[in-house]
């Protein structure tokens, strides 16, 4: 190869790199707000909740391949009359179709297991799909990252691969992604065996679970999920769960949160999620009002004889 040709190739490669850098810079050229915000879990409850935007809807952005770009910081919306953190929110009476084994597993979770997330065990899915916490998506052509509070994440390969025949069990399972039109299908199998709760209410999930998520971005401000859960060990039939999140404000996003940094409370937490109310929400046994002048600790001590 002549020196001239080699130089030309070098220049060509350099130009390609420069072009790639320019494209990357363009992608990152979103103007930063004067006071960019990150969300430190657990931030103020209000900052974790989304609100419906006003004004006309804008079309969802698309990536270079023409797929909707799901990238964004997504905040939850509350649905009137529906419980939060409950995978059964769309079912009549919020009642999940438990098998006898599922009933036993639910009882076990509620009476003998400490909330895995409180012990810094990964929440996994579908729990994060049902969570009241925001999350972030970063989309690249062949790999999509879902990032969650508590500094956990999952990566979705979107490269045509199929499920492995015997995948290593994981808290987030083993997902494969595929675009069908404007819908990202995430098909997940290979979950851990009964080590985590399905949702905030300690509903059970098993290693037999198969979760199919259908993600769409109907407009720039919303991301939507249609979830199908099929766990024949614990549920008599598949069931569905639908949810919509709204885009966070410009500059909002996740930040570091180390669950294990100083988890003093882990050894003080008892089993179960607490009382579940008729409205399907946990927390039915939480007091609504703190007295203005509560008593000192001695008030609760049993007098010595």
């Amino acid at each position: 190869m002549s020196r001239g040709r080699s130089t030309a190739n070098l220049v060509s490669r350099a130009s390609g790199v420069a072009a790639a850098l320019l494209i990357a810079a363009g992608a990152l050229a979103q103007p930063a707000p004067p006071h960019a915000k990150s969300v430190e879990v657990e931030g103020d409850g209000a900052t974790l909740q989304g609100t419906e935007p006003t004004g006309p809807a804008r079309a969802a952005p698309r990536d270079a391949a023409g797929h909707p770009d799901l990238t964004g910081y997504w905040k939850p919306l509350r649905e009137p009359g529906k419980p939060g953190g409950n995978i059964g929110k769309d079912l009549p009476g919020f009642k999940l179709p438990l098998t006898p084994a599922g009933e036993a597993a639910l009882k076990h979770n509620r009476t003998e297991t400490i909330d895995p997330e409180a012990l810094c065990i990964l929440g996994g899915i579908p729990r994060h799909d049902a969570s009241g916490l925001p999350f972030e998506v970063l989309q690249t052509p062949r790999r999509i990252a879902f990032l969650y509070l508590y500094s956990t994440h999952r990566f979705i390969p979107v490269d045509g691969r199929k499920h492995e025949p015997d995948p290593e069990p994981r808290f987030f399972g083993n997902p494969v992604g595929e675009w069908q039109g404007d819908t990202l299908i995430i098909d997940t199998v290979g979950f851990k065996d009964e080590k985590i709760w399905l949702d905030e209410n300690a509903d059970p999930q098993s290693d037999a679970m198969h979760a199919v998520e259908r993600w769409t971005r109907p407009d720039a401000a919303h991301i939507h999920l249609e979830l199908l859960v099929d766990d024949k060990k614990f549920y008599t039939r598949p069931f569905t769960f639908s949810r919509t999140w709204v885009l966070g404000e410009l500059g909002e996003g996740l930040t570091e949160y180390s669950c294990a940094e100083n988890n003093v409370d882990a050894k003080h937490i008892g089993p179960g999620p607490g009382a579940i109310g008729a409205d399907g929400n946990r927390g039915a046994d939480i007091p609504k009002r703190l007295p203005d002048n509560p008593p000192p600790p001695e008030f609760y001590e049993t007098p010595k004889r």
């Binding site: 939060g84 969570s131 939480i286």
Partner: peptide
């Protein structure tokens, strides 16, 4: 909303 790191009770 009830979505904390663990339930209060």
């Amino acid at each position: 909303p009830v979505f904390a790191h663990h339930s209060f009770s």
